[in-house]
Amino acid sequence: MNLAEGVQLVSFGVLALMMISAALGVVLLSNIVYSAFLLGAVFISIAGMYILLNAGFVAAAQVVIYVGAVNVLILFAIMLVNKREDFKVIPRAWIRQVSTAVVCAGLFALLSVMVLSTPWSYATEAIAGDAATVIIGQHFFSDFLLPFELASVLLLMALVGAIILARREFLPDDVPADATQSPILTLPERPRDLIGANTEGLDRS
């Protein structure tokens, strides 16, 4: 994709802002469903970065695999798991928040040093273009065969884990009194005696 330099800079800025905002939402929001949806926005913005780098196949694989498979799998696992648990106040919760902030700041500083110290020069080799798919396939099945297989095994483990979490093996017959629904949300059941009387009347007629 050949774009003007100004369009590339604006597109990069919009995608970077979208990625950073969505990533902050994934970490800071308390609703895990919103965090999962924002994770999909992060994956889509990364795919846009790949398009700016003339890596169309990698961008398509990013959308199909991470947005269409991994993120949907995470959403299914979140929405299918329905475990009732009472809210418990965590003692000294600020210690966890401070330690998380320290770890995030350390990772940000490490990545910043790496970005500033790396010589980001343009590659001297010719752009692969349409042959990029063939080159990626050759590397996948030669140099990166082991990481490729490990990634597939990890995705399979995530799928099996989501299925196990979503299963409901035990449904108790006796529901506790405090777990029953309120009368507003339940419909009154029709008496069975009236149903039997009506059927007998129909038979006689």
Rank of each mutant, 00 (worst) to 15 (best):
Ala158Gly: 01
Leu145Ser: 03
Tyr122Ala: 14
Ala128Pro: 06
Leu110Thr: 07
Phe108Asn: 07
Val102Ala: 06
Ile135Glu: 15
Val160Asp: 01
Glu125Asn: 08
Leu111Asn: 06
Pro176Ser: 02
Thr124Asn: 09
Ser152Leu: 15
Thr180Ser: 02
Thr186Pro: 03
Thr133Val: 15
Cys104Ser: 13
Ala131Trp: 08
Arg168Met: 05
Pro91Glu: 00
Gln138Trp: 12
Leu155Trp: 03
Ile164Gln: 07
Pro172Cys: 00
Val102Gln: 03
Cys104Pro: 00
Met114Val: 12
Ala123Asp: 11
Leu165Cys: 07
Met114Gly: 10
Thr180Asn: 05
Ala162Phe: 01
Phe141Val: 04
Leu150Gly: 00
Val175Ala: 05
Val89Ala: 14
Ala166Glu: 01
Pro172Trp: 00
Ile163Phe: 13
Leu110Lys: 03
Cys104Asn: 11
Leu145His: 00
Ile135Trp: 12
Leu111Ala: 14
Leu156Arg: 06
Phe141His: 10
Arg168Gln: 10
Leu159Lys: 00
Phe108Gln: 05
Met157Gln: 07
Glu125Ala: 11
Ile90Tyr: 10
Glu125Thr: 12
Glu149Lys: 11
Thr118Met: 09
Pro172Ile: 04
Ala132Tyr: 14
Leu155Thr: 03
Pro172Ala: 05
Val98Phe: 08
Met114Arg: 09
Thr118Val: 09
Phe170Gly: 04
Gln97Asn: 13
Pro119Glu: 08
Leu159Asp: 01
Ser117Lys: 10
Val89His: 15
Thr186Val: 14
Ala101Gly: 06
Leu171Lys: 04
Val98Leu: 09
Tyr122Asp: 14
Glu149Asp: 10
Ser142Asn: 10
Gln181Val: 09
Arg92Asn: 11
Gly161Glu: 03
Gly161Gln: 02
Ser117Val: 15
His139Met: 13
Leu159Met: 07
Arg96Glu: 13
Leu165Arg: 04
Lys88Phe: 09
Trp120Cys: 03
Ala128Cys: 12
Phe87Leu: 14
Leu185His: 06
Ser112Leu: 10
His139Pro: 04
Tyr122Gln: 15
Val134Phe: 13
Thr124Arg: 10
Phe144Tyr: 15
Glu125Arg: 08
Ser112Thr: 07
Arg167Asp: 02
Ser117His: 11
Leu159Val: 03
Leu154Tyr: 07
Asp130Pro: 02
